[in-house]
Write a protein that binds this DNA or RNA. Structure first.
Lengths: 338, 338
DNA sequence: CATCACCTGTATAACGTTATAGAGCCGCGC
DNA sequence: GCGCGGCTCTATAACGTTATACAGGTGATG
């Protein structure tokens, strides 16, 4: 349908190859010829057929970002950053929703369904080291968030243990002693849940506080509803917590809801901290104290690493990169809003 | 790199064309041959090179969903539905972020950047009838949300006027008399803002209430922050409203925040209603009454229409489809949570 | 003046697929 | 026995691009 190289070549009175060289500068072209060709391109409105180009080049120009849920604002915010970074590098980013499903993650890893993409950024939830090592697809892979260790792939995430430390230290500093954690997982999945629990335990120990297993609430997923249910259970304990640290902001927001329903005051009765710094947390009542990962760094770095691997560049630096984070004190731990 | 048709053909001892026919059933193939080929495919693990296939077929198998912001949960929820519907129909959905930018919308319409996609689902914000009519790209286009009328394209949206009516009727029914609207726009963009204001005015008139221009707050965008600021302004009026209807849930949630900060009780002092039924609204304090569009219908219908047009099928029914909605009564208008 | 290197531009072979034209083969009916 | 239709399967020409090999011309150098 569209205008193609041949049309341009005819119009400009040169060969196909010359037009191609003008378009992507693979070989030098004389100034006069270049101008004639460029004029023809402008007049006819040529844009290359990417299918054909990529068939020839062996690459498609697409990269995929696979996340467990698009409706988690953290991932939506991350995706927005990754999309624009990919565009800046000349790639188109395709979103894949794994829905935290093991089969979906495996399918992506093996690339069976995905002969279209040049590389994959995956936020793994259900797959671990073995599955990643068993990966057959040859295209580059960058892991974000959850840790899958000792695999030959880039991995970008915050230091989950340190992040937990910071959250718990803050709660201790404002005088809390019975600090609960919401969002532990039963199985081996969700490495970061384990790491965050570990940071929680270590920080408690460092503060001289006892570790009470009853105060660590497991959840199946990590949405608002899960946080709400877990908080209800915690409130039903004979001796409920005076602070809660959620696996992420959504869980913490669910906890806020359960506390409001039960008539508890936040932060007076129970203080709440989350992780992710989603925009929503700046508008809850009270506003949510949170650990803010640097989403811009994570999103951009993931895309850049992936593109560098795709293009075969030597990538400096270690495979695993830990990105910075900050503690944002807000209403849910007693800091008045600005 | 991968296994291709030729490898399979050699392995099975048949011709290229036969393998192709086995793969996509264009021509009948004898049972014995089919089995030999199928076995070779399974053994070697063949999957077609989509670039080549699409070069030949003239289609890429990609469709784009262009929305003003990925971080608006309404669009994230819609996107999740559209992605899975597209996958079910054998297409891959690419997300495009227009960031409510006119240039970005125009670029998508003209398809200059987008020779990769077979069709486009666009939620227009800054472009209107003329721009859509001037579209040069030949690929099918489906519009969602905002209305751009009298153009030869499918358009899927709720009846904005009726939705506003329902919201205002509800507020009137619970005894409110000074009802404000947050989210009018100055320019001609955002048709739906105009329509929602129109429904607001009509419903006021039908209830015998006066229309007070001071109670219609303009905003530049439609996020939580915009809603919060607008609500602050409304509260500063000599005679503040006793109810607020937001352009969408985000705006309404911002209003909730401003009300909480100013010490007003919801719904006792001010009742609040939004549109979109994003999950977040079920967890605010109080929970948010909202007009719930049927996102599943919108997302699926948009994708199906688009795919039908791409594949050249005759599409029955009118171009413009209005999708159903429901009023969900929650805490912000005095209905206790279930 | 011959040789050589260089600089532009051209012709063409891929890339992996699908659709078209046609080649064998078999059995049936005249 | 011959022609014919139907059924499988094959050979091959696209699709639009890029990279390779090559051709023609020009200027510099010995």
């Amino acid at each position: 349908m569209g205008v193609n190289l041949k049309d341009i070549a005819q119009r400009a009175g040169v060969s196909l190859a010359t037009v191609s060289n003008v378009v992507n500068g693979y070989r030098p072209v004389g100034e006069r010829t270049r101008q004639r060709v460029q004029q023809a391109i402008d007049e006819l409105g040529y844009s290359p057929n990417l299918g054909a180009r990529h068939l020839r080049r062996g690459r498609t120009g697409l990269i995929a970002l696979a996340i467990p849920e698009l409706t988690n604002p953290y991932f939506a915010e991350l995706a927005e950053i990754a999309i624009s970074e990919a565009a800046a590098l000349g790639y188109t980013l395709v979103m894949e929703n794994t829905a935290a499903d093991r089969e979906a993650e495996l399918a992506l890893l093996d690339g069976s369904r995905q002969r279209i993409i040049d590389g994959l950024i995956l936020s793994p939830v259900r797959v671990g080291r073995e599955e990643v090592l068993a990966r057959t697809a040859g295209s580059p892979l960058v892991l974000i968030g959850e840790g899958v260790y000792d695999v030959p792939h880039d991995h970008i995430a915050i230091d989950n243990v340190a992040a937990s430390h910071a959250a718990i230290r803050h709660l201790v500093a404002i005088g809390r002693r019975r600090i609960a954690f919401i969002g532990a997982t039963p199985g081996g999945d969700r490495q970061s849940a384990h790491l965050r629990v570990r940071g929680y335990r270590e920080a408690l120990a460092a503060a001289g506080l006892p570790y009470r297993p009853l105060l660590v609430a497991r959840t199946d997923a990590f949405g608002r509803l899960d946080g709400m249910r877990a908080m209800r259970d915690l409130l039903a304990l004979g001796d409920p917590p005076d602070a809660v640290f959620g696996y992420n902001d959504l869980v913490a927001i669910g906890a806020l809801r359960a506390l409001a329903e039960a008539g508890h005051r936040v932060p007076e009765d129970v203080a709440v901290v989350g992780i992710d710094d989603i925009e929503e947390g700046r508008f809850t009542a009270p506003t949510l104290t949170t650990i803010a990962p640097d989403k811009r760094v994570i999103g951009r770095l993931a895309v850049r690493r992936l593109v560098a691997r795709i293009e075969g560049a030597e990538v400096a630096g270690p495979l695993t990169v830990q990105t910075p984070f900050r503690l944002l004190r807000r209403g849910s731990t007693g800091t008045p809003d600005a």
